[in-house]
Design a protein around this nucleic acid. Structure first.
Length: 497
RNA sequence: GGCGCAUUCGUCUAGUGGUUAGGACGCAAGGUUCUCAACCUUGAAACAGGGGUUCAAUUCCCCUAUGCGCUACCA
């Protein structure tokens, strides 16, 4: 049978890191076995679903490169079918009408109220004590005909258990005594999650459900629905969760933007690097290496390599340098400095365009210059943003001077105020503007002034790039070019700051 | 409260009934250097606790602790 998997987010916020990894694993699994990767938007909770969320999720997926193989399914479009299915189960006696009045939510937090109620009921709760469970068909029909509102509940058998072999967690069993007669249809006719998921998964021909471990107990309920419908359930595999530092829940409300995929896209991460990072959060190929291309991930991916324990996404919101996981930052830097230059170039171009630093010549006449420059400066960059930030002076005259750099490398050596313009004069007469002649000239200049090479070069670095750190100055002179080098060495702007 | 899942360096993880418990990030020290990275070398850093089983347990079993999940006419 051809494998068909789906990623099924509910559009109640942007694509967060846990969902992104679920999408990744579904994608890798599908590609590994040559199956299809589908996308379903679970927007049945009209009150909380927004189009904006849907758009944001789609954007996140697009950035990561996970395009669905078939048309996107919107769950709300199938509400009628879900309803029909519930009614069919009702007709067949596999479900029943519950005429209990719907409880209005109290003032308290819904979640807290549920836990409180559960605590009071303890372990003694009889899941089959609903008085309408065994109501006669005639009476049930009559009350419904009279217009009395009802919810539809699945009639779970008294005795027995559900079981399934989870692709990650192994054999899972649950006694019926632990499963309530779950509501399929609300009293307003609205189909609920478990029903909708099962119906759609059947409809879409899903063979493997790979989702977060938070659905582990739902799976038993869903299997009951499959059975009631006379369908064979798909295979299931549940993924460990991604937690915040300290092992706490990673939440949009508390942790904010840091959990959103678009944050990483906008912060200058490469999708390839972030995918790679995500893949290693809860999965391993069992080897001592960290860098994997998408193709390699697809080739090596297997459910067996997925861990059972939750992983912590490490970050420190009080530390600017550690705003997100160290390893993610490292991996992005690793990609930036080691990936094939021709693959990096388009990303840099996009960044420069968005910062208005792009010139069309970079694509034709100055293409070679552009490539060499990118190759030179990428060595110490962490994100694509650095190309328009730290690397700005290579692409524009409009760059800022780092005050610390001025103090440390310029003002500490007041003689540089005379020396650097003098060096510029010497450069004027240099015919061959390339590394070796520049080196010889500077080194003779330093001997003459009886100063260290570094003093002059570091001073020049501040005037030429505005930074205290950067690539080799000799290479920088060459790349920035003779005219601009001379001009910047003579500039007084930095000195006056 | 009930049910379920989990527990190897700070973090991501490898691994085995007998290992100096390996790698990566981060951290520290040193080397290199025009700066900073990169790179190289080195270092600190872990089997949650208690019982079993066994000649031998980090590995198998049980208990405890801790964390997480579920416990809705949410998804």
């Amino acid at each position: 049978m051809n494998v068909r998997v789906r990623f099924a987010p509910s559009p109640t916020g942007y694509l967060h890191i846990g969902s992104a990894r679920t999408a990744l694993f579904n994608y890798l699994y599908a590609r590994h076995v040559g199956g299809k990767f589908l996308l379903r938007i679970e927007d049945t909770d009209l009150a909380r679903s927004t189009e904006e969320s849907t758009r944001s999720i789609l954007e996140g997926l697009e950035w990561l490169g996970f395009q669905p193989d078939e048309e996107i399914v919107f769950q709300s479009d199938n509400a009628d079918k879900h309803r029909q299915t519930a009614l069919k189960l009702l007709e067949e006696g596999k479900a029943y009408r519950d005429f209990t009045k719907k409880e209005e939510p109290g003032d308290k937090d819904i979640k807290a109220a549920i836990v409180e109620k559960a605590r009071q009921q303890g372990g003694d709760k009889n899941m089959r004590d609903n008085p309408f469970r065994d109501l006669s068909g005639e009476e049930s029909d009559a009350r419904a005909a009279a217009g009395e509102p009802f919810a539809v509940r699945l009639k779970v058998a008294e005795e027995g258990q559900t079981s399934f072999e989870d692709g990650v967690y192994g054999m899972q069993e649950r006694s019926f005594a632990e499963i309530e007669d779950l509501v399929l249809l609300r009293s307003d006719g609205h189909p609920l999650y478990n029903l909708a998921v099962v119906c759609d998964d059947i409809e879409m021909g899903i063979t493997d459900v790979i989702r977060g471990q938070d659905h582990l107990t739902n799976t038993h309920k869903q299997i009951l629905i499959y059975r009631a419908l006379g369908k064979e359930p798909p295979r299931f595999a549940h993924l460990p969760l991604i937690l915040a530092p300290g092992g706490k829940k990673l939440s949009k409300r508390i942790h904010g933007e840091i959990v959103s995929m678009t944050t990483y896209r906008d912060a200058g991460f490469l999708a390839a690097a972030f995918r790679n990072f995500l893949a290693l959060l809860g999965w391993s190929a069992g080897e001592e290496r960290e860098i994997y291309s998408l193709e390699e991930l697809i080739e090596k991916f297997s459910l067996e390599g997925i861990h059972r324990n939750n992983a912590i996404f490490n970050f420190d919101s009080n530390n600017e340098r550690r705003w997100t996981d160290d390893k993610a930052i490292w991996m992005n830097a690793e990609y930036i400095r080691t990936m094939p230059l021709d693959q990096l170039i388009p990303h840099v171009a996009r960044e420069l365009k968005s910062e208005k630093l792009w010139r069309d010549e970079y694509e034709d006449d100055d293409r070679e210059w552009f490539e060499t420059t990118v190759d030179l400066i990428r060595e110490r960059f962490y994100t694509l943003k650095d190309f328009s930030g730290q690397g700005r002076a290579f692409f524009s005259e409009d760059f800022d001077f780092d005050p610390k750099a001025i103090d440390k490398n310029l003002k500490k050596h007041p003689q540089l105020k005379e020396w650097l313009p003098e060096l510029a004069d010497r450069f004027e007469s240099l015919e061959n503007w390339s590394h070796d002649p520049i080196h010889d000239l500077v080194s003779r200049f330093c001997e003459e002034k009886e100063t260290k090479f570094g003093v002059v070069l570091n001073g020049a670095r501040v005037l030429l790039t505005g930074q205290a750190v950067g690539p080799s100055m000799l290479a920088a002179f060459e790349q920035i070019g003779k005219d601009k080098t001379i001009m910047r060495l003579k500039s007084r702007i930095a000195w006056n700051q």
